[in-house]
Amino acid sequence: MIDRTAPAPRPSPSAPVPGVPAGGGTAPAAEPEAAALREAAPPVLSLQGVHQVFPTRRGDVPAVAGVDLDVRPGQVLCLVGESGCGKTTSARMAAGLADPTSGSVLFRGQDVAAMDKRERSRFRRAVQYIHQDPYASLNPVRTVYSTVSAGLRRHRMVKDRNEARRAVTELLERVDLTPAEDYLDKYPHQMSGGQRQRVAVARALAMNPEVIIADESTSMLDVSIRVSLLNTLGRLRDELGVSFLFITHDLAVAKYFAWDGEIAVMYLGKVVEHGPTPQVVNDPRHPYTRALVSAVCEPDPDLARTKERVRLRSADIPDLTDLPPGCDFHPRCPLYAQGSCDTVRPPLVRSHDRLLACHVVTRE
């Protein structure tokens, strides 16, 4: 049923990941030639200057304020940031679940908002969404078979019930729910959280997607189950060539899953740093990214004692209805420079090997 060819396995990086066991094969170090080809390929899914403003009684809330992102074939793009920074809103717009207030979402170069019914149906199949909560994302009165086969039947990808059950069995085995026959007729309440999330992954794979948007899809799972699911997602990425827009607040998870991909760091609806994962995680340059890396737990006591701690000027996050002038991060920033940071909003510009939005760092 799934007709993509599987590339040769790639080795995982030797760099340890704080809070996540090393190895596992989910963070492969891509060959330079393959990486260059992916970067040269046109993006499958793009956000171009997207804004999302929510009107409230207290005023307009700019949840997303001009974000540009490209998801390229076979690539992982991680969107990282603390709660409320606009990650999920950006993901929902990318999936077509919410329309941007302004800006464009492009699939294969075509504006999603201008698609006709047939093109929209193709887009819906090609871009699949895995929600954060495995308890709420599955219908409690539907069996696993009914849930996973719904899209297959809706889009007439199977001829009859027997073919549908065979297809669902194959999908469950692909996401490591074996033996699949033991799960086909179960209801969500009869499974663990990790098993439910694997069912959600199988449901997404049923459409032969080109892009999977995983919105904090491992954050509600135990650590051991989290690593196992990340390994499964990494294997599917390598075998099927699926692109991922991976949403997480955990830089350790981003490093583990997207070692040869990219990380875009968001703060208050804007991308403040965007670059290759190894550079962003191992050498963060924006002060907000440095603070996020500093907050990652270090399991090695010796490294934990010597780890650099970033102290912010304030722990309070600005109100989205009353943002400060200049850089949104300047009230908390340890590198704050009076006269520039508090008057002029920094643009996102190319600085060596990444994009940065910081007056101080880009002057260095």
Rank of each mutant, 00 (worst) to 15 (best):
P140E: 09
R153C: 06
A114K: 15
C85V: 13
A34H: 08
L221S: 04
E82P: 04
A98I: 10
P179V: 00
M191W: 00
L356E: 05
G194E: 04
S351K: 05
S12A: 15
H286V: 11
S219G: 02
P278D: 10
A252T: 13
A200Y: 04
A6N: 10
R38P: 09
K186G: 00
P100V: 02
H155E: 12
L97K: 11
P325W: 05
I130A: 01
K117G: 09
D353P: 01
T248W: 01
P179S: 00
D3V: 07
R10T: 08
Q197E: 12
S340W: 14
G25I: 08
A126P: 05
D300I: 08
C341M: 02
D222F: 11
M207K: 03
D300S: 07
A304M: 02
D238M: 07
D68A: 04
R305W: 07
S46T: 11
A180F: 00
A65D: 01
Y129A: 01
P278Y: 00
E273F: 00
S12P: 15
N231V: 01
Y145N: 08
H330T: 03
V141C: 00
R153E: 14
L240H: 00
G326Y: 12
D319S: 15
V361P: 01
L152V: 15
K255S: 13
F54I: 12
T362E: 05
V265P: 13
T169C: 00
L292V: 13
M191S: 02
D70Q: 11
L303H: 12
I225N: 10
G81D: 08
E170P: 01
A180C: 06
A204M: 03
C327A: 06
Q128R: 06
R166C: 15
M220Y: 03
Q279S: 08
P11T: 09
T277Q: 00
A164W: 10
D133G: 07
G241C: 01
Q128Y: 02
V360Q: 10
V17P: 02
L348W: 13
R235V: 02
G59T: 09
A295K: 11
A40L: 09
L236I: 11
D316K: 10
R235Q: 03
F244V: 01
G275H: 07
T289Y: 11
P7L: 05
S104F: 15
F123M: 07
T56K: 05
V293P: 00
Q48T: 14
S83E: 04
R120S: 11
D322Q: 14
R58A: 08
S14N: 14
A35S: 07
Y256W: 12
A252M: 08
K270H: 09
V17K: 04
A98Y: 15
M1S: 14
P32E: 07
V344Y: 04
A252V: 10
G24T: 07
L171Q: 06
